[in-house]
Design a protein around this nucleic acid. Structure first.
Lengths: 197, 197
DNA sequence: ATTATTTCTAAACAATCGTTTAGTTTTAAA
DNA sequence: TTTAAAACTAAACGATTGTTTAGAAATAAT
């Protein structure tokens, strides 16, 4: 009697760009220049699409940045999964440090860690959503570090928390190092950092 | 026969503000919000003087920021002099780490280290002079650290450079810690950092 | 082929950025 | 008292910011 055809998307005209692709490009630009210093004009050029399209796909600059943070998280998910599935305790955390900067060795001027860069930039700016994204990432990492440290049964809770805190802060130094220091200096820094754990 | 009166400054009207005072206020604003995120409008309000007066005294925003960096350097000169004049090697460097954050213990939300904050903002700052100032500060500090490490005659040159590099990067972690961590966490971090030196 | 809907281009938007300028007020020296 | 130089106030500068809009082009469904 009745027939209903529901069009979730009318699809009158297809997009000429792939959203995942342009997010990747935007991420690299934000990653290098930071949030404030990356203008919509720069994004237009880098992403290869019009401002209108950016706003149609990501609502605004803020929304696009959040998508880029998301993209970064999936980008480093492999390294985190590797740490999660490892079973050698402290050695795995050290390996995570190496993994975090391994890709930086191939480029002249590393962009550092996108999360740490964002953390530093937004320590001054009030933005709840971005801060939540960054904080959750760091909290998750700290949880993982604690988990690995607990594999050493000889350590008490207080020692583990102290060491986890130390390593999380050491990661800031690593992020700074990855931007300017040589491969050898970075490796030496990691070795020094883990010498007393 | 002849008398010459040379007016180095015509002094037609005295300034209503003290330059050192307004620089101090500007420094604290830059220190908290960073260079890019501090506008002339905010500076006007905080310094309590008109834009015209700011430009008359400091040429422009860059000039004002450089004056603030200078002011910061004299502000921490005491701590650096203490390190320079000390004679106990590594223990002096550790004490310098404690001195660097001692004033932060008194406030709720520390602004961190002005130099490190500015260093982290490098991707957003195009001004070469500012970067030179910050880099020279860090180079000087590294030189001091090396000097103190060399007091231990049992260490070879390579070890000393490796340790100096490690400590300079550890300072980044300390700066991050000083902004959010508790007094105990910061102290634990310092102790952990120096355990293997 | 027509229609309806979406994406595209390109221009304009108001707000803010750092900076400059015009005009008034102050004040030391003549 | 007059004069000239410096410092003040307040408004405006052009450039750039993130964002919006008007209209043309494209395309799936009728």
């Amino acid at each position: 009697m009745f027939s209903f055809v529901v069009y979730l998307s009318a699809m009158a005209r297809k997009k000429k760009y792939d959203e995942a692709e342009v997010v990747e490009k935007a991420m690299n630009l934000f990653w290098r220049n930071g949030y404030v210093n990356t203008s919509m004009q720069m994004l237009e050029k880098e992403m290869g699409i019009n401002k209108f399209s950016i706003y149609a796909s990501f609502e605004n600059k803020h929304g696009l940045f959040l998508k880029c943070l998301e993209r970064y998280k999936t980008k480093v998910r492999g390294i985190l999964e590797k740490l999660k599935n490892a079973n050698n305790g402290v050695a795995d955390i050290k390996q995570f440090f190496y993994d975090s900067v391994s890709s930086d060795f191939k480029v002249d001027h590393s962009k550092g860690c996108f999360i740490t860069n964002t953390y530093n930039e937004f320590s001054q700016i009030e933005d709840q959503l971005i801060k939540e994204q960054v904080n959750s990432f760091m909290t998750d990492l700290k949880g993982l570090i604690i988990e690995k440290l607990k594999m050493d049964k000889t350590k008490d809770e207080e020692t583990i928390l102290r060491e986890a805190n130390y390593l999380l802060l050491a990661k800031h130094g690593l992020a700074a190092a990855s931007r300017v220091n040589t491969k050898k200096e970075i490796e030496d820094y990691i070795e020094m950092t883990f010498k007393n754990i």
